[in-house]
Design a protein around this nucleic acid. Structure first.
Lengths: 343, 343
DNA sequence: CGGCATTGTGTTAGCGCTACCATGTTAGCG
DNA sequence: CGCTAACATGGTAGCGCTAACACAATGCCG
């Protein structure tokens, strides 16, 4: 039926069978097919089987775009990270993906390259896709971004760091992590300690760790020299940073690196230069990547529960989406000082 | 106007301003707003400015779901990889993302965990999103997947390996890579060479490299023993594999690892055991990850152009989407033997 | 066996946008 | 100055699906 009228204008559509065609072939109405697929328990078992068989036979693939428009819910989760080059974010993404995919959500991944303006653009686009939730790394956003999100009433999860969040928050205290490592180094009686970071204006969490570190050193009446590299965490940058410390601070007893990539790069470079760690100089990192535990000497670092952070964040968002109890808005996943043999 | 009738049933919609509201506020028709945003050159400059100002003022965010439904084109690119744990795929994704995002495409990332059935499910879902193209790692797909894709007429790009592709293909010859490294090892006069891989049934590209390796050894009249680990590439697995070789093949002169993670794990373990590479035993890898070039001795490996592979794949897909010249369907990105000091 | 909840299915009216065609308006030409 | 082409804008009709309601048919109660 429903040939409407013999209109001369036709839209092309996608050739694919539609829900209506499945319905016709199965001898039921469109809505019944829809229910058989999306809410099976609301359809009689016999009808359901008949419908599913027809779906199979026609090779019907639901048009999720149409479904999303009609229901104004897509099963998308926007995930925004500042970098893919950093293993930390990969692991967080992995945790998120695993948990969300199990519940039938699809991740929309955005990469800001540590650019807060780019974050705004990405969020704008993602809102256009009627995402069910937004997971973004960090608490710093542009003003435009904040006002965009202010009128949005789906869950917003900010991960990595703790603080004054828009909505949900899972992370750890980077100031405290910086303090923790600085205290460890002082406890080992190193007095001349250099902090080496990379692009601290963009990787501001590394700057927060530096601030914690500096606070502890100052309290102990010590200087807290800083070397800033212009290349984000990588083994290369770490090696370069190591040599800069040797040149600029020949009396340095220890180096506190902003992350494990830098620290490991330094450690491997030291090895190649024939130096002995920590006798000649001590090295510490941050993250607790496996790599640091495989080098000799084992790297002293701080382990953050990365995959767990992703998983926990995803679980909290899912709880919110299920409209279950709201539980805590803020979760401190903590960290753990991992004392290796490099300090 | 257009209050239709005072119908009692109302759909909730999303509160957000719609294209129509922008049009009313700007005193133009909806289609003009649409054009001002999506095809600015087709609208008079003055009108365009007026519309864009109104968009800004109302904080309008285009509903991309509705747009996709109406045009049956989404600006999504489905990208399917077998793993996120492997740095290789991260780099390929990075290359893809950079190139596609610049052209306004959004990546839909799927992770199969090396499960070919999961690939089918993901592709089904992604087709439901009317993706503009599909990029998937590898040439092996389930039958269901093949027949699903047979009736799909958007670009399909298979990356990583070369062969009998569905459509476009960018990759390298893994058999040849395996042969290449085996020849190198024979050239160094190692006669007893063990290949160590992980889950070769799933990581079948590593198996292809093994087959190339075996072929060369057999031709030289040598055995080609294989050790298979049950944990995918990681430093841990490499360390464990190294110890298994020592125990099982005490006379081994060289180990050819399926990838750099394994090889580096082995190298670092050897160091910790106080062994000297390559004097006690030679080690070779595959991938050319930066890590391998930072350890001492530098790892002998094969470098594959990973980010480039992603970029090239994306560019070829974009050409196809622009309906430009179809160029070559198959691109061999090649590889490079990187002779370090570990062999 | 009438009244009321429960279950299963259908009808209708959009979701917000763009393709398609139509129409008006200006420029370009001999 | 009439004719065509190019430009600028608008009206209408869906894209394929689901929310909201409607309405039978059945089960269960006193």
């Amino acid at each position: 039926m429903s040939n409407k009228r013999e209109s001369t204008r036709r839209r092309r559509g996608s050739e694919q069978p539609t829900l209506q065609q499945v319905a016709d072939a199965a001898g039921v109405s469109a809505i019944t097919v829809s229910r058989a697929l999306n809410a099976p328990e609301r359809v009689n078992a016999a009808t359901r089987l008949k419908v599913l068989a027809t779906v199979e036979r026609l090779g019907y693939v639901p048009n999720l775009v149409a479904g999303s428009l009609a229901s104004s819910r897509s099963r998308f989760i926007a995930v925004i990270v500042p970098s893919l080059a950093n293993a930390v974010f990969i692991e967080v993404i992995h945790g998120l993906q695993e948990t969300f995919e199990r519940e039938g959500y699809q991740i929309l991944l955005g990469n800001t390259d540590y650019d807060i303006e780019r974050e705004y653009q990405l969020i704008r686009t993602f809102l256009g896709w009627s995402c069910s939730a937004l997971v973004t790394a960090g608490l710093r956003h542009s003003e435009a971004c904040r006002s965009l999100l202010a009128h949005w009433d789906n869950p917003i999860m900010e991960v990595m760091e703790l603080g004054d969040a828009l909505d949900l928050n899972v992370g750890l205290d980077h100031h405290e992590a910086g303090r923790c490592m600085a205290r460890h180094l002082l406890g080992r009686h190193y007095r001349s300690v250099v902090y080496v970071g990379a692009c601290l204006d963009r990787d501001y969490r590394a700057r927060m760790r530096f601030e914690g570190h500096r606070e502890v050193l100052h309290t102990a009446g010590l200087e807290a020299p800083l070397i800033e590299l212009d290349q984000l965490g990588s083994l290369d940058a770490g090696a370069a940073g190591f040599e800069r410390v040797l040149a600029q601070y020949p009396d340095a007893e220890a180096i506190h690196f902003a992350n494990d990539d830098l620290a490991t790069g330094a450690l491997l470079r030291a090895q190649r230069l024939g130096m002995t760690i920590p006798r000649d100089i001590a090295i510490a990192g941050f993250n607790g990547l496996p790599l640091g535990q495989h080098v000799t000497p084992r790297l002293t670092t701080i382990r953050s529960p990365r995959e767990n952070m992703g998983r926990l964040a995803a679980e909290e968002v899912l709880k919110r989406l299920d409209a279950k109890r709201v539980t805590r808005r803020r979760h401190d996943v903590g960290f753990e000082l991992l004392i290796g043999d490099s300090t």
